[in-house]
Measured scan of single mutants.
Amino acid sequence: MPGGGPEMDDYMETLKDEEDALWENVECNRHMLSRYINPAKLTPYLRQCKVIDEQDEDEVLNAPMLPSKINRAGRLLDILHTKGQRGYVVFLESLEFYYPELYKLVTGKEPTRRFSTIVVEEGHEGLTHFLMNEVIKLQQQMKAKDLQRCELLARLRQLEDEKKQMTLTRVELLTFQERYYKMKEERDSYNDELVKVKDDNYNLAMRYAQLSEEKNMAVMRSRDLQLEIDQLKHRLNKMEEECKLERNQSLKLKNDIENRPKKEQVLELERENEMLKTKNQELQSIIQAGKRSLPDSDKAILDILEHDRKEALEDRQELVNRIYNLQEEARQAEELRDKYLEEKEDLELKCSTLGKDCEMYKHRMNTVMLQLEEVERERDQAFHSRDEAQTQYSQCLIEKDKYRKQIRELEEKNDEMRIEMVRREACIVNLESKLRRLSKDSNNLDQSLPRNLPVTIISQDFGDASPRTNGQEADDSSTSEESPEDSKYFLPYHPPQRRMNLKGIQLQRAKS
């Protein structure tokens, strides 16, 4: 015994090295194993092979420090690593049964499904019991997946119906949107047309105001020219009257000059006056001389005659003075006559000038009245044309509004008919989907599995289990394997941990 101590140590070291070499393959693929292994699927088989106990299973599945599946799978690998070579062998058998691809990844061999460990530990009855539990578990999982698949199909059909409904609603909204954009385009076109009409109206108003201003300026210029013409006519008439007055005065002077006595007659009258003065002096001298030589009687007679002569001279002087006064009065009367005649001529000139001015103003008033009548006639014609244009424009607008209203009513009726057609199509689609759903539900009910399987069917299934373990590994792997896509769409199922009653199965096998 003492001599065998070193050999035992060498043997233990060799086993430990082999164990480390075995687990080295697992550690190399630890990331892939932790990512894809579900500990809840492996722990029943590991407990059946007595590699882990209930406490280890509870620690792996329910520990609060292991929230994710990767953490739980890593903890399970750590626990199996502590179990040595047996933990490695049982772990590979569980991978061979549940995850053939991972088994091939770790060992590089094809899975054979021999279950040597569980046969050694529990015997064939334990293997049968384990396989029966796994089959029931798989059936329950398949039923749950079928239910989930039916629910998802129903949800899918519902979503398809909602999608069709949303599509129809979208078509309806597109119809309304198209109608909205069309009405918006019509409104924009009408606004552009309105702005264009306003611009045209403004341009016409500006043109009309400009023409009116030009016409008023032309009328004012015409009036100024007419006033200048009238003033020139007035000056012409005044000059004609002055010329006529000057002509009359010149004719009067000419007549006075023609009626003036001649120079010879004046000289002859002056000679006669001198001769008479000479004779008068001679007679006076004779009379003076006679007075001195005459007697007293003759002197008395001469005195009487002288007195008579003096009286006659006085009378004559009075007559001469009277004649002079009369001549002066006649001259003054002639001057007054000439003055009055001049005033008369001036008044006649003024009267004729005023008459011509009156005629001029009368003509001017007639011209202004004619212009006013023409302006009123043009204004009435413009008003009439404007009223006709406004009436025609309003009539066109009324007809346009009428046609637009008819078009809008027809478009609304068309839209309502399209919407009604879309709604009826939606109703038809809904009815078809309901009919299809009812038909599929009836087919699913016919094809669904019963909840409680008979014992004979279970025994028959387990009677055929042994050949399947040898020759149909691919079928078992397809039913027991969970793909990543299934984990996305289906909830994980945790079967209840219970042991099955095998009395009925044993009785059935005894009868057979």
Rank of each mutant, 00 (worst) to 15 (best):
P67G: 09
C28D: 05
K16Q: 14
Q139P: 04
C28I: 06
H124L: 07
R30W: 03
H124A: 14
V60I: 14
K41W: 08
M142R: 09
K69H: 04
K145V: 07
R113Q: 14
H129V: 12
F91K: 01
L61H: 01
Q140K: 12
G5N: 12
L80A: 03
K143V: 11
F91W: 00
Y36R: 07
E57V: 10
T112A: 13
E13M: 05
N71E: 04
P64F: 14
Y36M: 14
G123W: 15
N133C: 15
T128H: 15
K41S: 08
E27I: 05
M8E: 13
S34M: 01
P67Y: 13
T82E: 03
N62I: 05
Q140T: 08
G4V: 11
D53N: 10
Q141T: 13
P111L: 03
Q85K: 13
D9R: 11
Y11Q: 11
E24T: 01
E134D: 10
V90W: 04
N38H: 06
K83L: 02
P100Q: 10
D20L: 11
V51S: 07
P39S: 04
M12Q: 05
Y45I: 08
W23L: 02
E96R: 01
L80K: 03
D56T: 04
K109R: 13
D9F: 08
V90T: 10
G108T: 01
Y11G: 08
A40N: 07
P111A: 15
G126R: 15
H124S: 15
L15F: 06
L77S: 01
M32P: 04
L92F: 05
D56L: 07
V26K: 00
A21M: 13
K109N: 00
L102T: 00
T14R: 10
P44W: 01
E24D: 04
D9N: 09
L22P: 08
L66I: 06
D53S: 09
R72F: 02
E27R: 01
D9T: 11
E134C: 15
E57D: 06
P6H: 07
K143F: 04
D20W: 11
V119M: 15
E110F: 09
K145G: 12
I118K: 12
T43K: 07
S94M: 05
K41E: 06
Q48H: 08
Y45S: 08
Y11S: 09
D17S: 13
F130E: 13
L80M: 07
V60N: 01
E59P: 01
G84L: 04
D17Q: 08
V26S: 00
L33K: 01
F115W: 14
C49I: 08
P67I: 12
F130Y: 14
L15V: 09
K83F: 02
P111C: 04
I70R: 07
D58R: 02
K50R: 10
D20K: 09
P67W: 14
K104D: 15
N71C: 07
H129S: 13
I37K: 02
I52K: 06
L127I: 15
